[in-house]
Design a protein around this nucleic acid. Structure first.
Lengths: 139, 139
DNA sequence: TTATGTGCAAAACATTTGCAGGAGT
DNA sequence: ACTCCTGCAAATGTTTTGCACATAA
């Protein structure tokens, strides 16, 4: 965990990051809290929030602000897009190639200094979709 | 306001929609509440939330779930993308042509029934940026 | 040793909901 | 009349924060 010089490497931070790296889902702060609490039962929810926020600022992890009420976090920091199931709320990565060039187009069309973009697809996942998509075993 | 047969046309709904159509910003529920309250001082915040949600479901308005803590609403329903200032939080439309074809690509790359997508650019607006972008008058 | 971090609990926001009375159709 | 809708207030859910104590460097 590569941090600012004055940023300390605490047990809490190590474990939060380790747990986040274990999963490919995009857990909410509360889900991270539950994961971490199995190893550090006395950790506070505030600590989890503080550290997720801090790591996101430092760029160690990604903070994903997509549809739904809660923010989600991702240990995969290389640029990629997401797809969200409008039925169950699950968020997954999607392997569409990242369009680096549209940032420049956006800069030309706006008065902004453009820093980046994010694409979120929405749809219904195969689990929520039920039968159709795959050969689900019902009967 | 074209609604379900059993959905009533109330003063509250008319005024909420009128106020939303007046602005090109993308107000939060609370900002809509403030706008509407000037004309209907006794309206409840719950009513504003209920009706914005309802209109978004019906497709009369757009619910925008982008970065930041609050949801935003938009009376412009034709598909378009947004750009958000990471400094002041303002959200504006951006005139990048909508890429209809990437939904199909996403469908092929995932196990989802893809319904659509949204792109959010992030950057720094000219106001927050200060000097550089435009000839701002300082001195 | 000392600035930074933590646990805990309270506070601050954002949104939803129950209910009794009000209003469209 | 008969639903649906509203205002109000309380409840719920998410995130932030103050503070005394703990701990990494």
């Amino acid at each position: 965990m590569q941090l600012n010089p004055q940023m300390r490497l605490t047990t809490q931070r190590q474990i939060i990051l380790e747990e986040l790296e274990k999963v490919t889902s995009h857990p909410t702060a509360n889900e991270v809290y539950d994961m971490v609490r199995k190893r550090l039962p006395r950790i506070g929810l505030g600590t989890v929030y503080r550290n997720l926020e801090l790591m996101a600022e430092t760029g160690i992890i990604l903070k994903i602000e997509v549809g739904g009420t809660q923010k989600r976090f991702d240990a995969t920091t290389h640029p990629h897009y997401h797809i969200r199931c409008i039925s169950c709320g699950k968020v997954e990565d999607i392997e569409i190639p990242v369009m680096a060039d549209i940032d420049q187009a956006a800069a030309e069309l706006s008065h902004y200094q453009v820093l980046g973009h994010h694409i979120e697809f929405s749809g219904v996942c195969s689990t929520c979709n039920g039968i159709e998509d795959e050969e689900v075993l019902i009967n």
